[in-house]
Nucleic acid binder design. Structure first.
Lengths: 238, 238
DNA sequence: GCAGGGTCTTGACAGTTGTCAAGAGATTCC
DNA sequence: GGAATCTCTTGACAACTGTCAAGACCCTGC
C-alpha cells in the first residue's frame, strides 16, 4: 500500500523551470505557492533538506566534488542513500543547494570590519587577520568552493550558481577595498573584477600552500594582503 | 601466441620507485640504463607515449579531469583503450606525464619579453599582451591546469607534480616582475609567492569570466595587469 | 621464411555511480 | 481506528570506470 511516493513532495521543488536555467533557489516559494503543505510540513521538509545538505557539505569539503557520491553523503547521516532523491531532484540540485546554503554564512564576513574600522590602517590589518582566520577555520569549505568554481569551467550546469556566488564575493571584497579607499581619501587603481581577482588569487594560493604543508603560508598571506590593499590605492583622479 | 606482453617494455618505466614519491619523469633514464632497447626502439616508444599524451591533453582540456576516461582518450586516437595501459602504468602516471609535457611549452613563455624589453613600460605592456594572448590561444590547457591544481587539494597523488609545476610558474612570473623592478629602479613590494598569486588570480578570474561568456574579460585583464605590475613596484628601501 | 619479441585488440573482471520503482513505517487527520 | 499521506528503506537497473589477462597482429633479425 502507499503508492504516493513518486508524486510525493517532489513537486514541491521547482518544476516550473524545465528549461535550461538550472538555478533552483525557488524551493520555498514554489512549495508555499502550491498551498499543499501547512507551515509545519514545509518547515520540517526544509529542516531535513538542510540537515542532509550539511552532511553533504561535510563530505564534499572532505573529498571534493569528483569523489563524493550520494551513498557516501548518506553514510554521514542516519538515513539511507535513497532519501537524497526524495529531498533533491538530482546531484546537481543537491550541490547547488549546498553551496547556496554555505554562501549565506560567509558573504557578509567582513562587513563588521568595514563598518567599524576607524581608519584605513586598522581596516587593512583587521581584513588581513580575518582572511587568515577564515582560511584556518573554514579550510575545507574554501577548498570545496574552488573545486566547484573550477568544475563550472567544464560543466555548464554549475555555471549559474558559480557566477551568482562569485559576484557576491566580488561585492564583498569591493566593500572592503572601496571603504579603505574612502578612509584613505584615495581611489582604487584596479577594476572591480580585478580587485576581487587579486585578493582571491592571494587567498587561493595561500590555501593551496597551507594544505600542501607550507606553515608560513598564512603569515605571508597576512602581510601580503596588507601591502596589496595599500598598493591598490591611487591618488584621486581629480 | 606471444606471452611477452605482461613483461614487455613495462619495466622501461620507473619501477625503481615503489615507495611514495609518485613522481615519474625518469622514464628515459630508466629505459636507457637497462640497455635492453636500442635507440630506435626507445624513440619509437617515447614517440607513441607523446602521441597518446597529446590525445589525452586534448581530451582533458575539453572535459576536465573528472569526466575524462581512458576510453575517451583512446577514442581520440587510432588505437583502442587497452594501449594506454601498455604505455602508462595507470591513470595517474598518464596525467602527470601529460602535465609535465605541457609544462615545457609554457614555463618559458615570457622569457623573450623579459630579455628584450628596453624599459619598464614596454615590459609591462608586452607582458599584459602575452597574458591575453595565451588566455585566448591556450584556453583549454589553462583550464586543465587549474582543474589539476584544485584536485591536488583533495588528492595527494597529484600534489608533487602540482607543487613542482607551481614553483616553476612562480619563477616564471618572478622573472618578469623582478626585471620590471630593475628597469624601474625599484623593489618589489610583495613576497615572491604573493606576486605569483595575484597575477595568477587575475589570470584565473579572467579565464573563468571569459569562459562564462564575458567578452570584456580579456580587455580588463590587459589593463589590470599593467596597473598591477606598476603598483607592485616600491621605492627601493635604501 | 621462420622464430621471437614488440605492439595492439579484445573481452572480460570487479567495483562504483546516479537513478528510480516498489513497498514498508510512521504520522496525521477525520 | 482506519484511511490517506508523508517519510524512508530496500533492492535493483544500466551505465561507466580502471585494470588486466589472453591472444592476435606485425615487424625485425637471423
Amino acid at each position: 500500500m502507499g503508492v504516493a511516493c513518486p508524486e510525493g513532495p517532489r513537486d514541491a521543488r521547482n518544476d516550473d523551470e524545465d528549461g535550461e536555467s538550472g538555478v533552483s533557489h525557488a524551493t520555498q516559494e514554489a512549495a508555499s505557492a502550491t498551498g499543499r503543505f501547512e507551515r509545519a510540513g514545509i518547515d520540517k521538509f526544509e529542516a531535513r533538506r538542510a540537515e542532509l545538505a550539511d552532511a553533504a557539505l561535510a563530505t564534499l569539503g572532505e573529498l571534493g566534488l569528483a569523489r563524493t557520491s550520494l551513498r557516501e553523503i548518506a553514510q554521514k547521516t542516519d538515513f539511507s542513500h535513497g532519501v537524497l532523491h526524495y529531498y533533491f531532484r538530482d546531484k546537481v540540485e543537491l550541490i547547488t543547494y549546498c553551496v547556496r546554503r554555505y554562501k549565506e554564512h560567509c558573504v557578509t564576513r567582513y562587513d563588521a570590519i568595514v563598518a567599524e574600522s576607524p581608519d584605513a590602517a586598522t581596516l587593512s590589518e583587521r581584513f588581513a587577520d580575518a582572511l587568515v582566520a577564515t582560511l584556518l577555520d573554514d579550510t575545507a569549505m574554501h577548498r570545496l568552493w574552488y573545486d566547484l568554481r573550477t568544475q563550472a569551467m567544464f560543466d555548464g550546469a554549475l555555471l549559474p550558481t558559480v557566477v551568482d556566488l562569485d559576484r557576491q564575493l566580488e561585492d564583498m571584497i569591493w566593500r572592503v577595498v572601496s571603504q579603505h579607499a574612502e578612509l584613505a581619501a584615495s581611489d582604487v587603481a584596479l577594476s572591480r573584477a580585478g580587485v576581487y581577482a587579486v585578493f582571491d588569487g592571494l587567498f587561493e594560493g595561500s590555501l593551496q600552500r597551507h594544505l600542501a604543508g607550507d606553515t608560513a603560508a598564512t603569515g605571508r598571506l597576512r602581510t601580503d594582503a596588507v601591502v596589496l590593499l595599500t598598493r591598490l590605492m591611487a591618488e584621486p583622479s581629480s
